[in-house]
Design a protein around this nucleic acid. Structure first.
Length: 144
RNA sequence: CAAGCAGGCCACCUUAUCGCCGUGUGCUGAACCUAGUUCGGCGCAGGGAGGAAAGUCCGGACACCAUAGUGCGGCAUAGCGGGUAACGCCCGUCGUUUCGUUUUUAACGGAACAGGACAAGUGCAGCAGAAAGUAUGUACAGGUAAUGCUGUAGUGAAAUCAGGUAAACUCUAUGCGGUGAAACGUCAUGUAAAUCGGUGUUUGAGGGCUGCACGCCCGAGCCGAAGGGUAGGCGGUUAGAGCCUUUGGGCAACUGAAGGCCUAGAUAAAUGAUAGGGAUCCGCCUCUGGCGGAGACAGAAUCCGGCUUACGGCCUGCUUUUUAA
RNA sequence: GGAGUGUUAGCUCAGUUGGUUUAGAGCAUCGCCUUGACAGGGCGGGGGUCGUUGGUUCGAAUCCAAUACACUUCA
């Protein structure tokens, strides 16, 4: 199991000809309070437990196609350490899987990932459900 | 070995891959006519959570409000002396209480203490008790010319004793102006210097975020209704009552001098993820080892000094049999 | 980051300022009566570490301190 996942990572890195982008720079972070407010007000959502993705098709201030944020509700996790840990895991999950949704389309989106679970997760589960959520999102965009 | 007390130290390490945030430095792309500015890209070097970052319980620095002023009110502290920028913190010392395996006394050691004043005034005290503060009854004994005049018993936490109680009001001494980085400064963006009603311009509306009054300053707008816009950047913002070493002073807290060091600055908020190896601890077993598991409390948000609380491990010292009559 | 409030029976609240009396009220629950039976009504009962710990006091739900939890609010 351990060796397998290691191989997968190395395969992704070495076998892709275009040098897949795993970076997550400042411009791709969702920072505007205004945008976040409008996300909660009029955004649509896709969810696959324990991750919920709220998205909105809008104009972005920077020249990127997606800006992403992650939140964990304080109600479910009181400890700031645990909240931080989950947010970091969500960021990692998005960073390593964002090639699924980055297809140079002209439409730009604002993303916000919510963690709905009540236990601190392992990276494996975050990774799997992140992939599923992003595929669900793609389906919805292409067909609707 | 175990327990208790006191003090000190650490806060898993390392390799690979992929990432994040500052700093320094080198090269470089695009936009505008140039100077230069703005937006980027690549490389190198070095840095990147805590002992409590927490609770927000105290004290400051700093900023604005009059160079923060007067009176009342309010709040805090409380033996004495010292330390400190300051403190409700720390150190020393006196006293009281308590512990040190039978009792008493003394010494010694440990622990706790919001430990000023009820000899200014006011209030309060269930039950019990004659009586709880303008109080004086019963029994016995003593005493007087006579009398609760004196003692003992009894009730109670407390009984003419300068009674008890101030974490009761209060008094005394000392200290405290208010608001807190969402303070404050500055740049940019943008609408509405619009509409309706009320009120006011030296006979002064309103404001200066102070509980009230005074005083001072600013002063032409202010209040309400309905509605509209912006909610961004930069500074403040990390070199500081800073840390380490040596040494002088002091019982100590602490402090003088010399030398060395630079040690996070994010803002929907960085300090991470995955995989391997190694130490640590726990459990089990077929015990020179093997297998499985765990990794405490917890995340900077202007910055310092304390206190309190949460919590894993290691090391050192002392006590667990104190002494005398 | 700052400021503030609350915690009492299964639930919603009094009582706390100003100390000592059995910690009360409504709903819920249990028993009995009323009814052929149910609802409703009447009578009676049980149920409380007063969030936790410590202190002051003769005595603490109440005063003081620490702590836990929940909630509100501020450009």
């Amino acid at each position: 199991m351990i060796v397998k996942s290691r191989e997968i990572v190395s395969m992704i890195i070495s076998d892709t000809p275009n040098k897949m982008d795993f970076s997550f720079p400042k411009n791709e972070k969702l920072k505007s309070k205004k945008l976040i407010d409008s996300l909660f007000a009029e955004g649509k959502s896709v969810s696959y437990y324990p991750i919920k993705l709220i998205y909105l098709k809008t104009e972005l201030p920077k020249r990127v196609s997606i800006q992403t944020g992650a939140t964990v509700p304080k109600k479910n996790f009181k400890s700031a350490v645990k909240r931080n840990r989950i947010k970091r895991l969500l960021r990692e999950g998005y960073r390593l899987n964002k090639h699924l949704v980055f297809n140079n389309s002209k439409t730009s989106f604002a993303f916000l990932f919510l963690y709905l679970g009540k236990d601190t997760p392992q990276y494996n589960t975050i990774d799997e459900s992140m992939k599923l959520v992003l595929r669900k999102f793609n389906k919805k965009i292409n067909h609707g």
